[in-house]
Write a protein that binds this DNA or RNA. Structure first.
Lengths: 232, 232
DNA sequence: CGATTAATTGATACTTCTCAAATCCTGTGG
DNA sequence: CCACAGGATTTGAGAAGTATCAATTAATCG
């Protein structure tokens, strides 16, 4: 499923940060962008690199992670169809703060830096949208910081399952529509793989979730929210 | 030390995000802004509120924190002269994600939301600066997440002292120019107050830092960086 | 269908938290 | 300026939470 040549025809368009662009600007982007595809597991960018453009995901899923002590991954967030990655580095003029790799076979549109800046300058509304996006992500990061600092591993694990469901939705069988290894789950939660496994078993035993290989189904959302100390 | 009536005369101007504004826009802001002062310890905004403008600090220090489980504070960051707070909420159109209180007697300029948006729209360069600022903060937040997830308490504590020195500088005696209670330090590091105290004693015993009441002096910066696992 | 990687479980060690008690310090009122 | 009350800091002991290492079983991919 290659992305269309023109961004106006893109099915992700309504959900993306590009949705307020004028037809004219979209045409401009369409002409300047290129398409790139990544195989499952492939690295798109390495932490510390200087990306020369932003990627807009057309199909597939990416994970963004930092390498911490002893090469352990800390997964910062995921990105899926319609999401844009790489913009933080470009706009702050800093090296990229997280590595990006593909969880699935993924197609992206690649918009070179110069075109991206041009569109920002020509479209105050788009500029404001990007600003809004980065501020929202800043809010999410803040929540993550508080969780890591104050919740225990089981609470964070429960929280992550809720976040995953909100991010990726459910498949036809009611499972959260993402496959992650236990290690990746641990790397989101910020714990050891074995600890994550034990606590997943715990949540399963309590009937809050069900698992089938690398798929997770949320059985008792209310109890899971309570376990995660989510009150909103 | 009240802020000047006109922003062009503000001593913080060169370091602030406003530094690229045209004289004309600065005049406009100067006319629309108002001055507010806060006593030490006073709360400026509460988490969940909807600020109606942004604050630019003229003098003093603020702390931004979220309340986690059982009312425990998680300090997200500090802000000092020249820094702007409240913009994240306004730009993302979300409730404010952290409470803000004054660590010192503080003077701020208050720029109403509408004026702030107007200046953003009139000044692409300023808009880009704000964008850059939020992306930089996003990078900082990412580092904090990795630290919390992967470093132990002693490593994070060492890191915090380095961050404090970089943020607040040193006074005439070489102490980091900020007074924080042990509890506040613990609330930055994400640990119990008693744990922070024990580890501070440890760093002191190892000769990496010196303390005098609520002031801290960094004695062996290199060793402290190594303790904090900071490599850059 | 192997070979390799992932998941699970157990045992143990280490880190961190909590509670309690003692001492110290700071800001305030006289 | 000094004494004092109340909060802050410090230390100890024990409990709880997590990590680590090792061994086994299960799942996945070519």
């Amino acid at each position: 499923m290659e992305p269309p040549v023109n961004c106006q025809l893109c099915k992700n368009h309504p959900n993306s940060v590009f949705n307020d662009l004028s037809a004219e600007s979209l045409d401009k982007i369409s002409k300047l962008k290129s398409c790139v595809s990544f195989k499952k597991g492939q690295t798109i960018l390495q932490e510390g690199a200087r990306p020369q453009g932003v990627y807009c995901i057309h199909k597939g899923k990416l994970k963004l992670f930092k390498l911490g002590t002893e090469g352990k991954e800390q997964i910062m967030r995921f990105a899926t169809a319609g999401d844009m990655v790489g913009y933080r580095s470009i706009l702050s003029d800093e090296p990229i703060s997280a590595s990006i790799s593909a969880l699935d076979d993924t197609y992206c549109c690649y918009i070179p830096k110069s075109s991206f800046f041009q569109v920002i300058q020509d479209n105050p509304k788009f500029s404001l949208n990007v600003l809004k996006l980065s501020c929202q992500e800043l809010g999410e990061a803040g929540k993550m910081i508080t969780s890591l600092a104050q919740k225990n591993v089981k609470e964070r694990l429960a929280e992550i399952f809720l976040i995953l469901r909100a991010t990726f939705g459910e498949d036809e069988d009611g499972f959260v529509d993402i496959k992650l290894t236990r290690e990746e789950i641990a790397n989101m939660v910020g714990t050891a793989t074995e600890s994550a496994i034990r606590l997943i078993s715990g949540l399963r035993a309590e009937g809050l979730i069900e698992t089938k290989g690398r798929k997770v189904k949320i059985i008792d959302r209310v109890a899971l929210r309570s376990e995660a100390l989510v009150f909103e």
